[in-house]
């Protein structure tokens, strides 16, 4: 009988970490250098592709405005507004998806009856509803963007949760049956914990969808200080470096969302980590 595995919880070694991420960093830097070099070499017009240094300059300018007293940065304001719309819609849509999955999983008949609709709805390009949501809630009301985000994230959240709740190991289920456990106890102590990996993978997908939904919703109109409107306006006035700076901001929101979910996942599923001591 082998002994328990040793804890790998020695704390991250900084040098090891640097070596681990070095190739990724090198690739990122090379791509940026290549981009800059090619644009300069072929003298590409800025409305086709601005130089990374131009985008950076716009960005730095906005950071200065943001930090300066009495000034305000429209880019940062727009980022805040889009972040809020994406976040609100994400929370509403994912909560609704998980809750409805929990309700339908309790009655198998109900989940079997609703699943085909959910899967069908999931393949509909829901961003196409954005103008309708703008119409329902009002163009400048953040609720219109939240609504479109909520609808987009709802289906993956619900479908994955139902899948996780139903695809339970048969032996693990028989164990519960041998204890004469009630359906509620089986849900709480077996189905929900086994569904957690499915739920988190849905949340990761939903986090990317949320940004897309919010920005595309804003393409169809909204307040000036939102990333979608910002990008369309700067692009139509041929200020592409500014448009690209906004795209970078939208990406940063997406990465931030993703990291928050990853952190939550690690906190809520400690058994998946290398160390197991409480």
């Amino acid at each position: 009988m082998s002994a328990a595995r040793p804890n790998k919880n020695d704390g991250p070694n900084i040098i090891e970490q640097v070596i681990y991420y070095l190739p990724t960093a090198l690739i990122a830097v090379s791509v940026l250098l290549l981009w800059e070099g090619l644009v300069r070499l072929f003298d590409v017009q800025q409305f086709i592709l601005p130089k990374p240094t131009d985008i950076l300059a716009e960005f730095v300018g906005e950071v200065r405005l943001f930090l300066a007293a009495g000034e305000s940065s429209i880019l940062f304001e727009a980022t805040g507004a889009t972040l809020w719309a994406a976040f609100g819609g994400f929370v509403i849509g994912c909560s609704a998806g998980v809750i409805i999955a929990l309700i339908t999983a309790r009655w198998t008949v109900l989940s079997e009856a609703t699943m085909p609709f959910a899967i069908a709805a999931n393949s509909v390009p829901i961003v196409a509803f954005a103008p309708i949501m703008n119409n329902w809630f009002g163009l400048t009301n953040p609720a219109s963007k939240m609504a479109i985000v909520a609808i987009i994230v709802f289906f993956p959240a619900m479908i994955n949760t139902v899948r996780g709740l139903t695809l339970v190991d048969q032996r693990e289920l028989e164990l519960m049956r041998s204890y004469a456990a009630t359906p509620f106890e089986i849900l709480r102590k077996l189905r929900i914990p086994s569904a957690l990996p499915y739920i988190f993978s849905a949340l990761r997908v939903a986090s990317a969808l949320a940004i897309i939904g919010a920005v595309v919703g804003e393409f169809f109109g909204g307040p000036r200080a939102t990333l979608g409107v910002f990008i369309t306006q700067e692009a139509s006035s041929f200020d592409f470096a500014r448009a690209w700076a906004a795209i970078v901001m939208a990406s940063l929101i997406g990465i931030g969302f993703y990291l928050v979910i990853l952190t939550l996942e690690r906190i809520m599923m400690p058994w998946e980590r290398g160390d197991g001591q409480k």
Binding site: M1, S2, A3, A4
Partner: peptide, 12 residues
């Protein structure tokens, strides 16, 4: 008692 199952061998 404080370990997770995957940290134990099959016999354990």
């Amino acid at each position: 008692g404080g370990h997770y199952p995957r940290q134990l061998s099959g016999g354990m």
